[in-house]
Nucleic acid binder design. Structure first.
Lengths: 205, 205
DNA sequence: GTCTATACGGCGATAGAC
DNA sequence: GTCTATCGCCGTATAGAC
């Protein structure tokens, strides 16, 4: 299986162009639209050149997944310095585009081992980075530890916005507004915004 | 688009066999494995016969989605008679097989309008049935209405187990056990099991 | 190292014969 | 109601040009 064939270098500008084009194709038309011929046309190269850099389409998907996870971890290592990591997680997981892309990869992962292990590893890496940031602030939240743990809370702060975005994609809205209000009220309570802290000091809502 | 072509009857036993085989194929190998030739081989018929009943593959997926939603609503109209509808929702949404199937359909829906509207309608119908059952018990929960609404709570009781199942499929586990414990403690509080109610009466945990 | 041309079997879909 | 023939896509392997 493509063991002795030559493969383009990882630093090639053409390769980066192909990865970007592939991501756009996935977002616009789904992973099934990422074909050698279609991707080549979109990027303005020959189909066989795409094959040169990615011998199989799984190779392309894994590379795309890895570069995306790396970018997320970079962005998060900055955000983790904040004193409001739960808000950072909430906003991160509320990203519609990222959720749409994640859905495509989850569907791919469901039946392709290479992608499955890549997305599993990536998920754990992101969650661990989040956990480290939240743990640093945990005692200041004043939550009952018997009620919820940092890891458990983090899971829910990821899962809820993700499912909100997914359901809204195909027109299910029941309970969405209410759920968002509940969570944001919770966030206002344990990670008060600056002006809200002032309002609290003044005894206002 | 297949407007004048003849189509097999909806009551055909062959048609039902094809729908069942298609669902198994989706679960085992993903929706991409549902091909005319593959499905025909699985069901022991000619590929062109599959096309006779389902002129396009989208027709097949929509029919499968609709029959599945109908079955769920039947099952739920029974369960809604219970005095513990939130537990029923929690268990319903925790079904691994159903979640795997839902992921396949969500990925399909993401870029196919016919499936998108079918899954959207189905989602609302299920959520409405759940809402009716929970509303009937709502006052007994003794929850602060400003904290969470029935619809908002229901969304979370669906979203959390669904995302648990999805993440576990590709090996992300961080926070899962803690989240489950938190929710089940919440359920024990507002929908106490019979023996737990006795324990509460006795002042035990 | 980068890129291209070509071939193979499988796919969804259509038109039409039995 | 059932099945065949056909079309233009697809992934992928290979052989080879710059």
């Amino acid at each position: 299986m493509a063991s002795s064939r030559r493969v383009g270098s990882t630093t090639s500008r053409t390769r980066t162009l192909l990865l970007n084009s592939a991501q756009q194709l996935m977002l616009e038309h789904g992973y099934a639209a990422v074909t050698y011929r279609g991707l080549a046309a979109r990027a303005g190269v020959a189909a066989s050149l795409v094959q040169y850099y990615f011998p199989t389409l799984d190779d392309l998907f894994v590379a795309l997944l890895r570069s995306g996870t790396d970018r997320i971890l970079e962005r998060f290592s900055e955000a983790s310095q904040t004193e409001q990591p739960l808000r950072a997680v909430w906003e991160y997981a509320s990203d519609r585009t990222a959720t749409a892309l994640l859905l495509e990869f989850m569907a791919l992962a469901n039946h392709r081992k290479a992608i499955q292990s890549e997305i599993g590893r990536g998920g754990e890496r992101v969650r661990d980075a989040q956990l480290e940031a939240v743990s640093r602030q945990w005692t200041q939240y004043g939550l009952d530890e018997r009620a919820v743990s940092p890891a458990g809370l983090l899971f829910m702060m990821n899962a809820i916005p993700r499912m909100l975005a997914l359901e809204e994609t195909f027109g299910t809205h029941t309970g969405h507004r209410d759920a968002v209000e509940t969570i944001e009220r919770f966030l206002d309570h344990i990670e008060p915004r600056r002006h809200e802290r002032e309002e609290q000091d003044l005894g206002a809502d």
